[in-house]
């Protein structure tokens, strides 16, 4: 876990640097090497790492608009993911998707920029596993803001009534852009939503990666054994703005300070030290993470940009012309014989 978390943190810090290049002193969202919105997940690593540790390649994960830490924990190809974020031809989606729309079928990973809309496809992956008698599971990650969305609540119900192997993971970072949790729901503990569907709901306190690991072990185990879905809520921190460029004027200083103070990575490091892991071992892991990330970013930036005409490809896997070519001749298709 420590490795995935250290990788994800450094990854977000490096992307922040790259993103802000060309956006100073005036912040222009369409300038610089990475254009468009960028939602970074620094402070949320524990949720992704603690859960994905229990997953196999044939398990499916869906993530929301803030996907990098989950993708890293699920083992998405870091180089091709980075190339995608830089809009390059060798990116996961050859530059068509960008940072909110990363797809790596080999790693069982996908994400969506529309709030809570990753939940129904995760239910579908669970449904496929159940129908095929396979023991793979599906995990849907979402923010606490997303738990007021119909797609999430409908998915809980469908997964519960069909006893599907799905785990829903709410990453509660207290904020949905500028809206604090208490303004948009009267239920501070999001895992209580589970009660309405008669499934287990578990909440994990701030920044405790080990506790996430334990809770997820049970939830994933339950799903894999065919005993149905679980809802987990993990309290995390948003250490950066909602998106890069967010002035965060709405956010109290104390809240920013609290996010900076509490650090799940440091906490895990402390836990590991107390178990006898040496400092230089941890530093070696961090160093390796930095090297891997730097290498991915350097590689991505060397990749060519896509050809403009590539925009016309991939709308269908069977392009309309292909379909027409196979259409049977009218006379032959006639029902005379």
């Amino acid at each position: 876990m420590f490795e995935e978390m250290a990788t994800a943190r450094y990854y977000e810090e490096r992307l922040q640097e790259e993103y802000l290049e060309g956006k100073q002193p005036a912040f222009d969202i369409s300038a610089g090497p990475i254009p468009g919105e960028l939602h970074l997940a620094a402070g949320q690593e524990a949720a992704a790492a603690g859960v994905c540790r229990h997953l196999r390649d044939d398990d499916t994960v869906t993530a929301p608009h803030r996907p990098h830490h989950v993708a890293i924990a699920k083992g998405v190809d870091l180089k091709r993911m980075t190339a995608e974020i830089f809009g390059r031809e060798s990116g996961l989606s050859s530059g068509k998707g960008g940072h909110m729309h990363l797809f790596d079928p080999d790693a069982g990973f996908a994400c969506s920029g529309i709030i809570a809309q990753g939940c129904p496809p995760a239910v579908g992956a669970g449904l496929a596993a159940k129908k095929r008698n396979e023991d793979s599971v599906a995990v849907a990650f979402l923010g606490e803001g997303a738990i007021s969305q119909g797609a999430f609540l409908e998915s809980l119900n469908l997964a519960a009534v069909q006893q599907l192997p799905v785990v829903f993971v709410i990453e509660d970072n207290d904020w949905a852009i500028s809206m604090p949790k208490e303004r948009v729901t009267d239920v501070a503990d999001g895992s209580r939503r589970a009660g309405g569907f008669d499934m287990p709901g578990v909440r994990v306190d701030y920044d405790d990666a080990t506790a996430v690991y334990d809770a997820a072990k049970e939830a994933v185990g339950r799903a894999r054994a065919g005993n149905g879905p679980t809802l987990l809520e993990v309290q995390v921190h948003r250490r950066m703005g909602h998106f890069m460029g967010d002035p965060e004027s709405y956010r109290p200083d104390e809240d920013v300070a609290a996010a900076e103070q509490r650090d799940s990575i440091e906490r895990l490091a402390d836990d590991l030290r107390s178990e006898g892991v040496e400092d230089d071992e941890l530093e070696a892991i961090r160093e390796e993470a930095r090297e891997r990330v730097d290498e991915a970013i350097e590689w991505a930036k060397e990749q060519p940009e896509p050809d403009p005409d590539a925009a016309y490809e991939d709308v269908f896997v069977n392009p309309p012309s292909g379909v027409t070519a196979q259409e049977p001749d009218h006379e032959l298709a006639g029902g005379d014989d």
């Binding site: 990116g91 530059g95 729309h101 050809d307 403009p308 590539a310």
Partner: peptide
């Protein structure tokens, strides 16, 4: 599409 050359 996301990438600049394609969106343009």
């Amino acid at each position: 599409p996301y990438a600049r050359p394609m969106e343009n």
